[in-house]
Design a protein around this nucleic acid. Structure first.
Lengths: 135, 135
DNA sequence: GCAGTATTTAGAACTGTTCTAAACTCCTTG
DNA sequence: CAAGGAGTTTAGAACAGTTCTAAATACTGC
């Protein structure tokens, strides 16, 4: 029986997070289907309409914890709102202005050459490529 | 006499903005030296300590107007704060986490190959590359 | 089961930004 | 070169998104 809450319970535990009812509900919404992009607000609306009441504060807490645990990746594309991406693998983003839609694209074919070395005393953390497009 | 307020007056007028005392003061701080990165808050502190009182609301207004006029470029690197860059030419950014320092690097030598075509019905607006580094 | 710690919650607080409406300033015209 | 009107500035309120607080609750190890 795939997609059962047991999967998420184990996955949360493996990430060092107690599998509470709320976290399991959120994990299920986030990870059950394909890759997704959510904001705290959008996920809160979703979890409410799924008859699994979770407070907004808990949604924020969970998103931050999932990100810290490597289950999610935070994408910063627009001032004043944070997107979280369930795809934590190497990939980049299309960002459609002004509607705020975000789409992944794989980094397989993308090559970036000629990047300068990191400033003295720092080491590379990540390279984000955001392709901004308009209608 | 280079760097005189006349330069900024003309430049603002050319951008379709009335050269008010406040806008000239801000333009001077922003454009007089080399390229800079500022936030509304940092620029407000600066203009206050330069004995040219300008309200915070006006700093926000001016930054947005300068950006809309193409005098500044907005850089989104961290959730919850906007940076403005006086360098409007092609270039990319180093972002030093967690202190929030931002450094330009030229896009001359950087080549990005293999980017997918923009989604149907959209056209390319800009490609941002943010190299995140840690101490 | 029970105790003890982690988590959740509602609401307050906070941060960064925008709005409001009254006062002021730049610019044009007469 | 005075006056009028549109554009601008201002302080403070309002707002959006996020984090904090302290009390109530739920998970886990024993």
């Amino acid at each position: 029986m795939p997609g059962t809450s047991l999967d998420f319970t184990a996955r949360l535990r493996a990430a060092g997070l107690r599998p509470t009812r709320q976290r399991v509900a959120l994990a299920r919404l986030l990870f059950e289907g394909g890759h997704r992009h959510v904001t705290a607000e959008s996920l809160h609306v979703e979890v409410k309409s799924a008859q699994m009441p979770v407070s907004l504060a808990t949604v924020y807490n969970a998103l931050n914890q999932f990100r810290d645990a490597g289950l999610l990746r935070e994408v910063v594309v627009a001032p004043g709102r944070s997107y979280f991406d369930t795809n934590t693998g190497h990939h980049h983003h299309f960002f459609v202005e002004p509607d705020g839609a975000l789409h992944d694209f794989p980094s397989d074919k993308v090559t970036i050459a000629g990047l300068p070395a990191p400033p003295k005393g720092t080491r590379l953390s990540r390279v984000d490529v955001i392709v901004r497009v308009r209608r």
